[in-house]
């Protein structure tokens, strides 16, 4: 069901943990739907992401996308991190099963949420960053009925 890369990041997730006094923290998803992602960012004065950590409650794909997303933004500038889309995360993992695509959206949202927190704390505006939705399932359509 999952690619080798997904399995690798699930089995050996990179950057799991917390950052004390993080520059920005973002939590997205909800327990009701079975996935919550939290990203911690440590951003220096030159707006470079020095360190990133995550914690995730969710399925294999949720853990793998969090792990990959942290790898993709680590050491990058804020603007570069803004370019880490869900598509980029998916591609880096060699794809996800269709039912798991929302996990990659969650990863993108979690990074945006952490950047938003950083921007708010430091009174700056990040170009292209909108206030993240806390619930990524909002507006998602119900399964089509059979019969």
């Amino acid at each position: 069901m999952y690619t080798e890369k997904v399995m690798d990041h699930f089995q050996h997730p990179r950057n799991v943990g917390e950052i004390e006094n993080a520059s920005g923290v973002g939590t997205v998803g909800n327990a009701k739907c079975g996935d919550i992602m939290r990203i911690y960012l440590d951003i220096d004065d030159n707006q470079i992401i020095r360190d990133v950590k995550f914690k995730t409650f969710g399925c294999g794909a949720a853990v793998a996308t969090s792990s990959m997303a942290t790898e993709l933004v680590k050491g990058k500038s804020i603007q570069e991190a803004m370019e880490v889309t869900n598509k980029a995360v998916m591609e880096a993992l060699d794809g996800l099963p269709p039912v798991k695509v929302h996990c990659s959206l969650l990863a993108e949202e979690a990074i945006h949420a952490a950047l938003w927190d950083y921007a708010e704390k430091h009174g700056i505006k990040i170009e292209g960053l909108e206030k993240p939705k806390s619930d990524i399932h909002e507006g998602e359509e119900e399964e089509e009925e059979e019969y």
């Binding site: 799991v16 939590t27 327990a31 914690k55 409650f57």
Partner: peptide
């Protein structure tokens, strides 16, 4: 659990 924000 170590990985879970809910547990944290």
């Amino acid at each position: 659990r170590k990985m879970s924000p809910l547990y944290e």
